[in-house]
Design a protein around this nucleic acid. Structure first.
Lengths: 214, 214
DNA sequence: CAATTCATGTGAAATTTTTAACAAAAAACG
DNA sequence: CGTTTTTTGTTAAAAATTTCACATGAATTG
């Protein structure tokens, strides 16, 4: 039952993150129990979808009642593996890198930034948000010392692949890439791309579409 | 032929944005022509997928040759409606709002930020990146003056819905929501959610999964 | 304590999306 | 100038995902 070794759709994982978001806001509002129907409405998905998604990981609800908000948050976080601390490192200390280092929501959510790397000699040695900027070339060496599980790339696009190589070489198995460039990694390394221009494009497209059909 | 009024999958639009990204980097590298096979490899998708995606919008390639990089960029941008200037406004002038206002890539990509709004009396009147911060309550009035097509919400979660209401009331039909909260909008308004913790969750999940199956 | 209500969990149906296969068209070559 | 090569555009098959429908089980009510 807990060994549901089938493939879990990527879309399911994305929705799980949305469920957490909504559940946490319900929790802040003091709601104890929620039905899949109501949760679905808030998330703009089908109620069956929610039940199906959750079923990949186990049975978290009570028939005739619904889901206990606090319990469900805990269960989903456990299912995703975000019920613990993850050690992360930022590679590329530009504006975005600095912003992320100063963003305290990271620690709050269990993602501890334990390393800051850059290849610019002028930045090396600088202290950003309590962390000394280290030369990217020393990433592997430092990783062995501090332990890095997830790498966050915030370099310019042309340096994203080199940053990736350093991370992969250091044994990092998960990467968030903010640089507007595709990167190559071995099969056992996961990459997520973050680029809000993609979202802007999507909105622009939909607005154009709706305006035309009007 | 250009009136392909069928529904275009959301996934297609997301990939189109990726294609632009890769094509622009190919262009920087001086590449003139690219085949769907090579482009596919770089984007980690199936070659048929690319041809299918492009077919929704028209015929952009030359059989036996491939796609002309510059032409394809132009065509995709036109198809998405991002070959022109979009007027945007930021609502919520916190750290993230300020960062976006100072980010010159926006203008470079045709998204001009023409308004900055916040409800905090201490922030109103302040000049951020050449723009005066205006009271959110005056959004509609200001929108009529400057014209706002896309709203960017960077408020705390509990104020996201109010920001949304101001934007909708002002006739804005597209919204990018950076606040970690779901928002309600009429059917004719498009919303895109941006939350990089969702990506962190996805990476954490995949890393956990791969580590277990090893 | 049987009957009713309610909302979950799930297997089957419907839909959507992706992949494969191939015909069509453009260029290259002898 | 026909033949071969190449790679697109497109139709058909396959796979994946979403939705529906309902049986199941927990709580509540008379």
């Amino acid at each position: 039952m807990s060994l549901k070794s089938q493939h879990i759709p990527r879309a399911t994982i994305q929705r799980m993150a949305v469920y957490i978001q909504v559940l946490e806001s319900l929790q802040r509002d003091g709601k104890d129990v929620i039905s899949s129907e109501l949760l679905a409405k808030t998330c703009s998905v089908n109620p069956s979808q929610i039940r199906k998604d959750l079923a990949y990981f186990g049975e978290f609800g009570v028939r005739g009642v619904g889901y206990y908000v606090q319990d469900l948050i805990t269960s989903i976080k456990q299912a995703l593996g975000v019920d613990r601390v993850w050690k992360t490192a930022v590679v590329g200390i530009g504006n975005l890198g600095r912003a992320l280092l100063n963003h305290r929501e990271f620690k709050l959510r269990g993602f501890h930034i334990v390393g800051a790397f850059d290849c610019d000699p002028f930045k090396i040695g600088e202290i950003v948000s309590g962390l000394e900027v280290i030369c990217s070339r020393r990433l592997k060496e430092k990783a062995e010392e501090i332990g890095i599980e997830i790498g966050i790339i915030t370099t310019p696009p042309e340096r994203a692949q080199r940053a990736t190589n350093y991370l992969v070489d250091a044994g990092v198995k998960g990467i968030i890439n903010f640089a507007p460039a595709r990167i190559n990694v071995p099969d056992d390394v996961t990459v997520e791309y973050v680029d809000f221009f993609h979202h802007l494009y999507a909105v622009a497209f939909n607005v154009t579409l709706n305006a035309e059909s009007e």
